[in-house]
């Protein structure tokens, strides 16, 4: 039984809690998570897969596996790659409806705004939006 979106978020909050708000450690940890993302297909690094509204380049793709959606992502910066990896971890393997209706409470709980700043917060929001749009698109495909 796979974890729910809520459960994965709680797991992330717990992991970040161990870092005790140390910014340098937190950044290192985020980058480490990014390094663990599965390799992104270079051919998919196209203009249309770039998430609009991010300061760094973020590429995002999604595929349908049965009634579940899997996401792949990459970024040209290590910290952003780590941040998007958190979203990939939360949303991959979930149902479209669950993704669309999900509420993300983990960014606030891990104090994300403190280490990404306002401008990049907008970028993070753009990533979430793009992932939900993929879910919406697949939902209509499933229902057809």
């Amino acid at each position: 039984m796979s974890q729910s979106i809520k459960e994965v978020q709680e797991e992330i909050i717990e992991e970040f809690g161990i870092l005790d708000g140390d910014m340098e450690m937190t950044n290192f940890y985020v980058m480490e998570l990014g390094q663990k993302l599965p390799e992104f297909n270079e051919e998919n690094k196209t203009e249309e897969n770039i998430v609009k509204g991010c300061q760094s380049k973020v590429w995002l793709t999604a595929e349908l596996n049965g009634d579940r959606i899997n996401y792949q992502a990459d970024s040209n910066t290590a910290i952003t790659k780590g941040l998007v990896s958190l979203l990939v971890r939360i949303f991959s393997g979930q149902k479209a409806d669950d993704i669309i209706e999900s509420e993300l409470f983990f960014p606030q709980k891990i104090g994300m705004e403190r280490f990404i700043g306002t401008q990049r917060s907008n970028g993070f929001g753009a990533m979430i939006k793009q992932m939900k749009l993929y879910a919406l698109a697949y939902k209509s495909k499933i229902e057809l």
Partner: peptide, 12 residues
């Protein structure tokens, strides 16, 4: 990427 360096330095 310069961004990562800037972010890491800020953490310090």
């Amino acid at each position: 990427h310069p961004f990562d360096i800037g972010q890491m330095l800020d953490a310090s």
